[in-house]
Design a protein around this nucleic acid. Structure first.
Length: 878
RNA sequence: GGGCGCUUAGCUCAGUUGGUUUAGAGCGUCUGCCUUACAAGCAGAGGGUCGGGGGUUCGACUCCCUCAGCGCCCACCA
């Protein structure tokens, strides 16, 4: 068949992806083979593919395809996450654009809209993954809020409640005034902010001299909630305030001065305003000193009636207003510029308001104890290992997890409140009712008397079960699938969710499945642009992966991605790398075109050079395959790719194919042809995990294939390196040096390719058996052995052997002298270093024998080379 | 404030327990080639003394100390 000179990815990609799916090649069922399991980090159900996904999914697909070709039963389970806050926010926004307020809808109405949204936008990202080439078992596609996963979440909640690990209580939580929900500590990100430090005057009550204390604060808008002022009892400069009472500026409320060593004497004036309702530390002080707590904020961050002033206004507007009002009232001592860190909602970006509220919590110490050892002792391996530190630090300082969210989109908390107070926790309403009757002693209770908790659970409370719940392991513990696929093999994810997700999956794994959820965790880097900026929608510096695929082909983009993705380092993505990937595809394509165009003549004997080439390439292939395997074992995917890339382009294409290529329109012998096809097949296997589409296309054309066959499931069979390989490879390196040496002379002298060159070798030719090959590659006549090289020759060394190209009148004696002198200088410096070492008795005594022997070899070689060069120079200067 | 990591050719990175010919790769650069598989290509060339300083050692890019710069994570100093 005729192939175009350029590879056209678009048609090939669609064709083979459909073929793979149609033939069920991604599907996995338990069988006798070793399983290789990966669960996808579920993207947000309404999300669209970005470069982070592109990187992540490519790595997973590479690992999965590699395992599949190794003969393992590879199972990659796809799915999406309901992403409680993010999705609810999107739905609320859409409703708002239609003039509908969430508050005006019932829970059921709102959820209907949310499901509509999910049906509309959900699954887009899964379709996009197919474009990338992801070989997921789509028949297993799951959703964190589908029936099975929901049952699992509820069952786990009830289980943990009964174990006494879940409790409900009033605590200081992180309140997101925009989403109007509590958040976990992990969902708060601290951002540095250039703000102001305000110094406020708190007049001392009844002080005849009109003295006042000065309090420094970044949040003057909270003074309405002040219920005390605090000094450090050891602070000499504030002794005079002991036992006094002060007046809150503008508000006029009189509050006591309390003493606590918590206060930093050095900060500001050493006087701290205490607002127990709106600061975590102040809350602690309030508890300790029995202070009243005044909650001055509404849930949306506006001032509540309890504030007395500025009621209904936004907290940040109030900050500006109150600054002016305090100045006008003469109660502002001064205002300084100040840089501090403000906790913000990871999702909505707004400043978090610490708020006292009733929430559900999960006790974490038990889980930390469960999850720390396996990571520290490498039962679960982190790649790179540096994240073990991060992990340990978090677990050693674990705090209880606030799992309730004041949202509707999510798993509703399975707690039901009784009319007379109290509540029961149950897997469903029926069970709740019977528990409630029992608890209240009232058998007449009906379902209508019970009121289910309005809150939903944190999204991560479902994600942490993912590796188990995907195999129905929560609802049907110990089932066959779970036993076969669990623990999963590798998890590929970003370090940004190490606490949110990775740590919690480890906890859930041991708690609910009795074993680790995965054996290895591969942490990818963050994708940045080439200026090092994080890719983001706001900056507009994130290319659309699908558009890249349109331009470079999926294989090209996958390769571009992996070329810049060393494990654990951030990715400096540059579109040019996709171009490199595309070029490589084209190279592979054209190599195939060459080989495919050959006519075989069975009567032809195999030329010596071709025999040598096939033997050598076999050795090289075995060596590189072993190297690649080692890279995979260490999760050095980009190194594995680079090794394959060089094997294909440099060794196979530039050297091997040139060695065996028949003259134009001449046929090739059978032995060489078969060996070449064989090598090509091996190369396609090595390439396939990185470039699934083009390798399938070429593999199908390489020889006749039966319907349903695929390179995907055809095992890779490259033998382990053989004993003789190393010598073979070394010899060929010398051949290459000789050829390059001749080509170098040719290039320097501008001698056309078709002009045959005569080459001399001084003494004897260690590469005599490769003469035919050298002639073919370098365009030379048979190498002549001479006693001393003649005039009009340009010489170079291969090892310690001197070769000289006859160039007659083209000789530039000055240039030859300069070249030889430069090399001589280098060698003498080198020799001096070696001899200094060997002259050091302690080196000869202490260093291992092999090292000393090597130095002696270096010395001998360098000496020989120097002698040769000196002769050359003498001859040139004659 | 604490912890971790990084600093090797113009760019992005390798360099595994210190010794493998006075440091390697890819890309880019320069020179010459449209040589009928490939100009998304071929051949050739140049380019770093391993952030600065000190130390350990027969020997350090590799180990230790220190300084500088960069990055990340954690933390209730208003």
């Amino acid at each position: 068949m005729e192939l175009q000179t350029k590879y056209n990815p678009a048609e090939v990609e669609t064709k083979w992806y459909e073929y793979w799916e149609r033939n069920g090649l991604f599907a996995s069922r338990p069988d006798g083979r070793e399983p290789y399991t990966v669960v996808i980090p579920p993207p947000n159900v309404t999300g669209i593919l970005h470069m982070g996904h592109m990187l992540n999914e490519t790595i997973q697909d590479i690992l999965v395809r590699r395992a599949r070709m190794e003969g393992k039963n590879a199972c990659w389970v796809p799915g999406t996450d309901h992403a409680s806050i993010a999705t609810e926010a999107k739905v609320v926004n859409r409703l708002a654009s239609q003039g509908i307020k969430k508050q005006d809808l019932t829970r059921e109405e709102f959820l209907r809209h949310a499901w509509d949204w999910t049906d509309e936008h959900g699954g887009i990202i899964l379709r996009q993954l197919r474009r990338v080439g992801a070989s997921c078992d789509w028949s297993r596609t799951a959703f964190t809020m589908d029936e099975e996963r929901s049952r699992s979440v509820i069952k786990v909640f009830v289980d943990l409640y009964r174990k006494g690990l879940i409790y409900r209580g009033v605590r200081m939580v992180n309140w997101d005034p925009k989403a109007q929900t509590a958040l976990s500590d992990e969902e708060v990100v601290y951002k540095e902010e250039h703000s102001k430090l305000y110094y406020l005057r708190y007049m001392v009550e009844g002080d005849a001299e009109g003295r006042y204390a000065v309090v420094a604060t970044t949040r003057p808008e909270t003074i309405m909630g002040d219920t005390a002022m605090c000094i450090n009892p050891t602070d000499p400069k504030n002794q005079w305030l002991r036992g006094k009472r002060v007046i809150v500026p503008l508000v006029g409320r009189v509050i006591p001065v309390i003493e606590d060593e918590y206060v930093d004497v050095e900060f500001g004036t050493g006087c701290l305003k205490v607002t127990p309702a709106h600061d975590v530390n102040d809350y602690m002080l309030g508890e300790k000193h029995n202070l009243p707590s005044i909650d001055i904020f509404n849930d949306d961050g506006t001032l509540a009636p309890a504030a007395g002033l500025y009621v209904g206004k936004d907290r940040f507007d109030v900050r500006r207003e109150i600054e002016q009002d305090l100045k006008d009232a003469g109660l502002m001592e001064k205002v300084e510029d100040y840089v501090n860190k403000v906790g913000c909602s990871e999702r909505t970006g707004v400043a978090i308001e610490p708020k006292l509220s009733m929430q559900w919590f999960l006790k974490m110490q038990h889980f930390a104890d469960l999850a720390l050892p396996p990571v520290m002792n490498d039962e679960i391996k982190f790649h790179p290992a540096k994240y073990k530190n991060t992990y340990r630090h978090w677990l050693e300082n674990i705090k209880d997890w606030c799992i309730s969210r004041q949202l509707w989109w999510g798993h509703r908390i399975p707690a039901w409140y009784l009319p007379e107070g109290g509540y029961v926790v149950a897997e469903n309403e029926d069970e709740a009712l019977s528990l409630a009757r029992e608890k209240s002693g009232n058998p007449a209770l009906t379902a209508a008397d019970l009121r289910q908790d309005e809150d939903a659970l944190d999204t991560w409370f479902s994600s942490w079960l993912w590796p188990i719940s995907l195999f129905d392991g929560i609802t049907r513990p110990g089932n066959d699938e779970l036993r076969y696929y669990y623990p999963t093999s590798d998890l590929v994810t970003g370090p940004d969710i190490i606490f949110f997700w990775v740590a919690r999956m480890i906890m859930a794994g041991y708690e609910f499945a009795g074993d680790k959820p995965f054996r290895n965790v591969y942490f990818t880097g963050i994708v940045r642009d080439k200026q090092g900026r994080k890719m983001s929608k706001q900056l507009g510096n994130s290319p659309d992966p699908l558009e890249l695929i349109d331009r470079f082909g999926a294989d090209g983009v996958r390769m571009g991605m992996m070329l810049c993705a060393p494990a654990g380092n951030d990715i400096l993505f540059d579109e040019a790398l996709c171009g490199q990937g595309r070029n490589f595809c084209n190279k592979v394509w054209n190599c195939f075109r060459l080989v495919q165009g050959w006519q075989v003549d069975d009567t032809l004997a195999q030329p010596q050079a071709s025999r040598q080439a096939t033997e050598w390439f076999g050795a090289k292939l075995r060596a590189v395959a072993a190297e690649v395997a080692d890279h995979y074992a260490k999760y050095r995917i980009s190194d594995a790719l680079m090794a394959v890339y060089r094997l294909f382009w440099d060794e196979f294409s530039s050297w091997y194919l040139e060695m065996v290529k028949p003259a134009y329109q001449q046929p090739i012998d059978r032995a060489t042809y078969d060996a070449t096809l064989h090598a090509f097949d091996h190369l396609l296997h090595l390439l396939h995990p990185f470039m699934p589409f083009i390798t399938e296309e070429l593999w199908q054309h390489l020889v006749e294939r039966a319907p349903g066959e695929s390179i995907m499931v055809s095992p890779q069979q490259i033998a382990a390196p053989a004993a003789a390989d190393a010598a073979l490879i070394r010899a060929m390196e010398d051949v290459k040096s000789l050829v390059s040496g001749v080509r170098g002379v040719r290039a320097a002298k501008n001698i056309p390719q078709r002009e045959r060159l005569n080459v001399q070798v001084v003494g004897s030719n260690p590469l005599a058996q490769y003469d035919e090959m050298v002639s073919k590659l370098a365009g030379t006549a048979p190498v002549k052995v001479v006693e001393a090289k003649g005039e009009g020759t340009s010489a170079f060394l291969v090892g310690t052997t001197e070769y000289a190209v006859e160039i007659g009148a083209l000789i530039d004696t000055e240039a030859e002298i300069a070249k030889a002198e430069a090399e001589l200088k280098h060698l003498r410096g080198f020799l001096a270093g070696v001899e200094k070492k060997l002259g050091n008795e302690r080196f000869v005594q202490n260093a291992p024998e092999a090292v000393v022997a090597l130095e002696r070899k270096k010395q001998a070689d360098a000496t020989a080379k120097i002698a040769t060069l000196e002769e050359t120079l003498a001859a040139l200067r004659k």
